[in-house]
Design a binder for these strands. Structure first.
Length: 315
DNA sequence: AAGACGAAAGTGGTTGA
DNA sequence: TCAACAACTTTCGTCTT
Protein backbone atom coordinates (compact mmCIF):
# COMPACT_ATOMS: atom_id res chain seq x y z
CA UNK A 1 0.00 0.00 0.00
CA UNK A 2 2.23 2.78 1.19
CA UNK A 3 5.89 3.12 1.97
CA UNK A 4 5.34 5.07 5.11
CA UNK A 5 2.95 4.19 7.85
CA UNK A 6 2.48 5.56 11.26
CA UNK A 7 2.39 3.11 14.13
CA UNK A 8 -1.03 2.10 15.30
CA UNK A 9 -0.33 3.04 18.88
CA UNK A 10 0.11 6.76 18.91
CA UNK A 11 0.39 9.10 21.87
CA UNK A 12 -2.92 10.60 22.99
CA UNK A 13 -2.03 14.14 22.15
CA UNK A 14 -4.04 16.85 20.53
CA UNK A 15 -5.62 15.34 17.50
CA UNK A 16 -8.04 17.15 15.29
CA UNK A 17 -9.87 15.92 12.26
CA UNK A 18 -10.40 18.23 9.39
CA UNK A 19 -11.51 18.11 5.81
CA UNK A 20 -9.06 19.28 3.22
CA UNK A 21 -9.77 20.26 -0.37
CA UNK A 22 -7.39 17.78 -1.96
CA UNK A 23 -7.80 14.14 -1.08
CA UNK A 24 -5.41 11.35 -0.14
CA UNK A 25 -3.55 10.12 -3.26
CA UNK A 26 -3.74 6.58 -1.97
CA UNK A 27 -7.36 6.03 -1.05
CA UNK A 28 -9.07 9.30 -2.11
CA UNK A 29 -10.27 9.93 1.39
CA UNK A 30 -10.58 13.56 2.35
CA UNK A 31 -10.35 12.99 6.09
CA UNK A 32 -7.01 13.69 7.67
CA UNK A 33 -5.53 13.49 11.12
CA UNK A 34 -3.30 16.25 12.29
CA UNK A 35 -0.83 15.19 14.94
CA UNK A 36 0.64 18.29 16.50
CA UNK A 37 3.35 16.54 18.48
CA UNK A 38 4.83 15.01 15.34
CA UNK A 39 4.00 17.78 12.93
CA UNK A 40 2.41 15.29 10.58
CA UNK A 41 -0.80 15.15 8.65
CA UNK A 42 -1.94 11.62 7.96
CA UNK A 43 -4.83 10.04 6.12
CA UNK A 44 -7.49 8.78 8.52
CA UNK A 45 -8.35 5.95 6.21
CA UNK A 46 -5.04 4.32 5.21
CA UNK A 47 -2.56 6.08 7.46
CA UNK A 48 -0.46 7.53 4.63
CA UNK A 49 1.56 10.53 5.72
CA UNK A 50 0.34 13.42 3.60
CA UNK A 51 2.52 16.15 5.01
CA UNK A 52 5.54 16.15 7.30
CA UNK A 53 7.44 18.71 9.33
CA UNK A 54 4.50 21.07 9.55
CA UNK A 55 5.50 24.21 11.35
CA UNK A 56 3.55 24.64 14.56
CA UNK A 57 2.47 28.24 14.83
CA UNK A 58 1.17 27.84 18.34
CA UNK A 59 2.95 28.84 21.53
CA UNK A 60 5.81 26.66 22.73
CA UNK A 61 4.44 26.62 26.29
CA UNK A 62 1.46 24.77 27.63
CA UNK A 63 -1.15 26.12 29.98
CA UNK A 64 -3.44 24.05 32.10
CA UNK A 65 -5.80 26.74 33.26
CA UNK A 66 -6.76 30.35 32.61
CA UNK A 67 -4.42 31.74 35.18
CA UNK A 68 -1.41 30.07 33.63
CA UNK A 69 -2.49 31.16 30.18
CA UNK A 70 -2.71 34.75 31.29
CA UNK A 71 0.72 34.54 32.84
CA UNK A 72 2.42 32.92 29.91
CA UNK A 73 0.91 34.86 27.04
CA UNK A 74 3.50 37.34 25.89
CA UNK A 75 1.59 39.17 23.16
CA UNK A 76 -1.36 41.55 23.13
CA UNK A 77 -3.87 42.53 20.49
CA UNK A 78 -2.47 42.93 16.97
CA UNK A 79 -1.51 46.44 15.97
CA UNK A 80 -3.89 48.15 13.60
CA UNK A 81 -3.77 51.21 11.42
CA UNK A 82 -7.39 51.98 12.11
CA UNK A 83 -6.61 53.35 15.56
CA UNK A 84 -4.65 56.56 15.54
CA UNK A 85 -1.85 55.28 17.77
CA UNK A 86 -2.09 51.78 16.30
CA UNK A 87 -3.63 50.54 19.54
CA UNK A 88 -0.32 50.77 21.35
CA UNK A 89 -0.98 53.40 24.00
CA UNK A 90 -2.03 53.01 27.59
CA UNK A 91 -5.10 54.41 29.23
CA UNK A 92 -5.43 54.87 32.95
CA UNK A 93 -8.64 53.45 34.35
CA UNK A 94 -11.14 55.80 35.96
CA UNK A 95 -11.83 53.40 38.79
CA UNK A 96 -10.32 54.65 42.01
CA UNK A 97 -9.39 51.37 43.59
CA UNK A 98 -7.73 51.66 46.98
CA UNK A 99 -6.35 55.10 46.40
CA UNK A 100 -6.02 57.25 49.45
CA UNK A 101 -7.57 60.68 49.37
CA UNK A 102 -4.15 62.33 49.33
CA UNK A 103 -3.29 60.50 46.16
CA UNK A 104 -6.56 61.25 44.39
CA UNK A 105 -5.39 64.61 43.08
CA UNK A 106 -2.16 63.11 41.89
CA UNK A 107 -4.00 60.38 40.02
CA UNK A 108 -6.25 62.92 38.42
CA UNK A 109 -3.23 64.81 37.12
CA UNK A 110 -1.67 61.60 35.86
CA UNK A 111 -4.76 60.71 33.89
CA UNK A 112 -4.96 64.17 32.44
CA UNK A 113 -1.37 64.00 31.23
CA UNK A 114 -1.81 60.53 29.91
CA UNK A 115 -4.69 61.69 27.75
CA UNK A 116 -2.76 64.74 26.60
CA UNK A 117 0.19 62.61 25.58
CA UNK A 118 -2.03 60.11 23.83
CA UNK A 119 -3.73 62.61 21.59
CA UNK A 120 -1.14 65.31 21.41
CA UNK A 121 -0.32 67.63 18.60
CA UNK A 122 -2.46 68.52 15.63
CA UNK A 123 -1.40 65.45 13.73
CA UNK A 124 -2.66 63.06 16.38
CA UNK A 125 -5.87 64.97 16.85
CA UNK A 126 -6.43 65.02 13.12
CA UNK A 127 -5.79 61.28 12.89
CA UNK A 128 -8.02 60.47 15.82
CA UNK A 129 -10.91 62.35 14.29
CA UNK A 130 -10.29 61.12 10.76
CA UNK A 131 -10.07 57.50 11.79
CA UNK A 132 -13.30 57.66 13.74
CA UNK A 133 -14.95 59.13 10.66
CA UNK A 134 -13.36 56.43 8.56
CA UNK A 135 -14.77 53.81 10.85
CA UNK A 136 -18.24 55.34 10.66
CA UNK A 137 -18.21 55.56 6.88
CA UNK A 138 -16.89 52.08 6.31
CA UNK A 139 -19.38 50.47 8.63
CA UNK A 140 -22.18 52.30 6.85
CA UNK A 141 -20.80 51.02 3.56
CA UNK A 142 -20.37 47.55 5.05
CA UNK A 143 -16.72 47.36 4.09
CA UNK A 144 -14.50 44.46 5.14
CA UNK A 145 -11.73 44.98 7.66
CA UNK A 146 -8.99 44.75 5.06
CA UNK A 147 -10.33 47.78 3.23
CA UNK A 148 -10.61 49.76 6.45
CA UNK A 149 -6.97 49.01 7.10
CA UNK A 150 -5.79 49.99 3.65
CA UNK A 151 -7.84 53.16 3.56
CA UNK A 152 -6.45 54.24 6.90
CA UNK A 153 -2.97 53.60 5.57
CA UNK A 154 -3.75 55.81 2.58
CA UNK A 155 -5.03 58.51 4.88
CA UNK A 156 -1.89 58.35 7.02
CA UNK A 157 0.26 58.70 3.93
CA UNK A 158 -1.78 61.66 2.76
CA UNK A 159 -1.35 63.24 6.18
CA UNK A 160 2.40 62.60 6.22
CA UNK A 161 2.76 64.16 2.81
CA UNK A 162 0.81 67.20 3.97
CA UNK A 163 -1.90 66.70 1.39
CA UNK A 164 -4.76 67.46 3.75
CA UNK A 165 -4.11 71.17 4.03
CA UNK A 166 -6.87 73.09 2.33
CA UNK A 167 -9.08 70.01 2.11
CA UNK A 168 -11.69 68.77 4.51
CA UNK A 169 -10.89 65.73 6.62
CA UNK A 170 -14.19 64.20 5.54
CA UNK A 171 -13.24 64.70 1.92
CA UNK A 172 -9.86 63.03 2.29
CA UNK A 173 -11.34 60.18 4.32
CA UNK A 174 -13.95 59.59 1.62
CA UNK A 175 -11.28 59.68 -1.07
CA UNK A 176 -9.11 57.21 0.86
CA UNK A 177 -12.00 54.81 1.12
CA UNK A 178 -12.79 55.23 -2.56
CA UNK A 179 -9.19 54.48 -3.52
CA UNK A 180 -8.93 51.49 -1.17
CA UNK A 181 -12.15 50.02 -2.55
CA UNK A 182 -10.95 50.36 -6.11
CA UNK A 183 -7.59 48.87 -5.31
CA UNK A 184 -9.17 45.77 -3.86
CA UNK A 185 -11.55 45.42 -6.81
CA UNK A 186 -14.62 46.03 -4.68
CA UNK A 187 -15.41 49.43 -6.13
CA UNK A 188 -18.04 51.71 -4.64
CA UNK A 189 -19.39 54.49 -6.78
CA UNK A 190 -18.68 58.10 -5.95
CA UNK A 191 -22.41 58.46 -5.44
CA UNK A 192 -22.51 55.78 -2.75
CA UNK A 193 -19.67 57.30 -0.78
CA UNK A 194 -20.99 60.79 -1.26
CA UNK A 195 -24.34 59.76 0.15
CA UNK A 196 -23.00 58.50 3.48
CA UNK A 197 -20.34 61.15 3.96
CA UNK A 198 -22.07 64.40 3.05
CA UNK A 199 -19.18 65.28 0.80
CA UNK A 200 -20.13 66.12 -2.75
CA UNK A 201 -19.31 63.71 -5.51
CA UNK A 202 -17.32 66.40 -7.20
CA UNK A 203 -15.17 67.00 -4.16
CA UNK A 204 -14.45 63.31 -3.61
CA UNK A 205 -13.57 62.94 -7.27
CA UNK A 206 -11.19 65.87 -7.16
CA UNK A 207 -9.59 64.72 -3.92
CA UNK A 208 -9.08 61.11 -4.86
CA UNK A 209 -7.45 62.05 -8.16
CA UNK A 210 -5.18 64.48 -6.37
CA UNK A 211 -4.17 61.98 -3.69
CA UNK A 212 -3.66 59.15 -6.14
CA UNK A 213 -1.41 61.39 -8.21
CA UNK A 214 0.60 62.72 -5.28
CA UNK A 215 1.08 59.32 -3.66
CA UNK A 216 1.82 57.62 -6.98
CA UNK A 217 -1.07 55.23 -6.59
CA UNK A 218 -1.89 53.58 -9.88
CA UNK A 219 -5.60 53.05 -10.28
CA UNK A 220 -6.69 50.73 -13.02
CA UNK A 221 -10.02 51.61 -14.60
CA UNK A 222 -12.84 49.78 -12.87
CA UNK A 223 -14.31 46.84 -14.68
CA UNK A 224 -18.08 46.41 -14.83
CA UNK A 225 -17.44 42.84 -13.65
CA UNK A 226 -16.45 44.14 -10.22
CA UNK A 227 -19.88 45.62 -9.69
CA UNK A 228 -21.89 42.61 -10.77
CA UNK A 229 -21.74 40.42 -7.64
CA UNK A 230 -22.83 43.29 -5.41
CA UNK A 231 -25.66 44.45 -7.67
CA UNK A 232 -26.78 40.88 -8.29
CA UNK A 233 -27.09 40.13 -4.61
CA UNK A 234 -28.96 43.35 -3.98
CA UNK A 235 -31.37 42.34 -6.74
CA UNK A 236 -31.51 38.80 -5.33
CA UNK A 237 -30.56 37.28 -8.64
CA UNK A 238 -29.41 33.66 -8.89
CA UNK A 239 -25.79 32.69 -9.29
CA UNK A 240 -26.52 31.55 -12.82
CA UNK A 241 -27.78 34.95 -13.87
CA UNK A 242 -24.79 36.51 -12.22
CA UNK A 243 -22.41 34.23 -14.10
CA UNK A 244 -24.23 35.00 -17.34
CA UNK A 245 -23.98 38.72 -16.71
CA UNK A 246 -20.25 38.41 -16.13
CA UNK A 247 -19.95 36.44 -19.35
CA UNK A 248 -21.82 39.14 -21.24
CA UNK A 249 -19.57 41.83 -19.84
CA UNK A 250 -16.41 39.91 -20.72
CA UNK A 251 -17.70 39.36 -24.22
CA UNK A 252 -18.40 43.03 -24.66
CA UNK A 253 -14.97 43.90 -23.28
CA UNK A 254 -13.45 41.73 -25.99
CA UNK A 255 -15.56 43.41 -28.62
CA UNK A 256 -14.36 46.74 -27.37
CA UNK A 257 -17.80 48.26 -27.21
CA UNK A 258 -17.39 49.35 -23.62
CA UNK A 259 -14.69 51.96 -23.94
CA UNK A 260 -15.64 55.34 -22.64
CA UNK A 261 -18.88 54.07 -21.18
CA UNK A 262 -19.62 54.07 -17.50
CA UNK A 263 -18.92 50.67 -15.96
CA UNK A 264 -22.02 50.76 -13.79
CA UNK A 265 -24.25 51.24 -16.81
CA UNK A 266 -22.73 48.24 -18.54
CA UNK A 267 -23.00 46.10 -15.41
CA UNK A 268 -26.63 47.13 -15.08
CA UNK A 269 -27.45 46.30 -18.69
CA UNK A 270 -25.70 42.93 -18.50
CA UNK A 271 -27.65 42.08 -15.36
CA UNK A 272 -30.87 43.13 -17.03
CA UNK A 273 -30.23 40.86 -19.99
CA UNK A 274 -29.19 37.98 -17.73
CA UNK A 275 -32.25 38.40 -15.56
CA UNK A 276 -34.48 38.20 -18.62
CA UNK A 277 -32.66 35.18 -20.04
CA UNK A 278 -33.03 33.22 -16.83
CA UNK A 279 -36.65 34.10 -16.31
CA UNK A 280 -36.10 36.18 -13.21
CA UNK A 281 -36.80 39.46 -14.89
CA UNK A 282 -36.18 42.60 -12.88
CA UNK A 283 -37.61 45.88 -14.04
CA UNK A 284 -35.22 48.39 -15.55
CA UNK A 285 -36.29 50.68 -12.75
CA UNK A 286 -35.14 48.31 -10.02
CA UNK A 287 -31.80 47.66 -11.66
CA UNK A 288 -31.33 51.34 -12.38
CA UNK A 289 -31.82 52.06 -8.71
CA UNK A 290 -29.23 49.64 -7.33
CA UNK A 291 -26.73 50.49 -10.05
CA UNK A 292 -27.18 54.22 -9.65
CA UNK A 293 -27.90 54.90 -13.31
CA UNK A 294 -31.08 55.77 -15.16
CA UNK A 295 -33.33 53.46 -17.09
CA UNK A 296 -32.41 55.30 -20.26
CA UNK A 297 -28.77 54.40 -19.81
CA UNK A 298 -29.65 50.77 -19.23
CA UNK A 299 -31.74 50.82 -22.41
CA UNK A 300 -28.95 52.35 -24.45
CA UNK A 301 -26.33 49.92 -23.18
CA UNK A 302 -28.64 46.99 -23.50
CA UNK A 303 -29.46 47.94 -27.07
CA UNK A 304 -25.79 48.14 -27.94
CA UNK A 305 -25.03 44.84 -26.24
CA UNK A 306 -27.82 42.91 -27.93
CA UNK A 307 -27.01 44.38 -31.33
CA UNK A 308 -23.29 43.68 -31.21
CA UNK A 309 -23.12 40.44 -29.31
CA UNK A 310 -25.80 38.22 -30.77
CA UNK A 311 -27.06 37.00 -27.42
CA UNK A 312 -30.21 35.43 -28.73
CA UNK A 313 -32.42 37.67 -26.68
CA UNK A 314 -35.87 38.35 -27.90
CA UNK A 315 -37.93 40.73 -25.91
C1' DA B 1 -51.73 50.27 -14.78
C1' DA B 2 -47.03 49.21 -14.88
C1' DG B 3 -43.24 48.73 -17.55
C1' DA B 4 -40.61 49.44 -21.77
C1' DC B 5 -39.22 52.40 -25.42
C1' DG B 6 -37.35 56.46 -27.72
C1' DA B 7 -36.86 61.43 -28.85
C1' DA B 8 -35.27 65.78 -27.37
C1' DA B 9 -33.28 68.98 -24.42
C1' DG B 10 -30.27 69.74 -20.46
C1' DT B 11 -26.11 68.83 -17.30
C1' DG B 12 -21.35 68.18 -15.66
C1' DG B 13 -16.84 66.83 -16.90
C1' DT B 14 -12.90 66.29 -20.18
C1' DT B 15 -9.99 67.79 -23.95
C1' DG B 16 -7.48 70.61 -26.95
C1' DA B 17 -6.56 75.12 -28.87
C1' DT C 1 -10.16 80.34 -20.57
C1' DC C 2 -13.34 78.83 -23.87
C1' DA C 3 -15.71 75.99 -27.10
C1' DA C 4 -16.48 71.36 -28.73
C1' DC C 5 -17.65 66.93 -27.41
C1' DA C 6 -19.32 62.42 -25.54
C1' DA C 7 -21.70 60.28 -21.88
C1' DC C 8 -25.36 60.51 -19.09
C1' DT C 9 -29.72 62.42 -17.11
C1' DT C 10 -34.36 64.40 -17.10
C1' DT C 11 -38.65 64.74 -19.03
C1' DC C 12 -42.40 63.34 -21.55
C1' DG C 13 -45.34 61.08 -24.93
C1' DT C 14 -46.36 56.55 -26.94
C1' DC C 15 -46.54 51.64 -27.22
C1' DT C 16 -46.87 46.88 -25.06
C1' DT C 17 -48.12 43.44 -21.80
Amino acid sequence: MSEKRVPKKRPKKKETTETVENCCPECKSTLFKYDQSKGERTCRCCGLVIEENIIDNGPEWRAFDHEQRDKRTRVGAPTTSTIHDQGLSTTIDWKNNNISSQNQAQWYRLRKWQRKIRISGSRERNLAFALSELDRYSSRLGLPRSIRESSSVIYRKALDNKLIRGRSIEGVVSASIYIACRQSNLPRTLDEISEISNVTKKEIGRTYRFIARELNIKLTPTSPVDYIPRFASELELSGESQAKAIKIVNQSLEEGITSGKGPTGIAAAALYIASVLFGERRTQRDIAEVAGVTEVTIRNRYKELTEKLDLGVSL
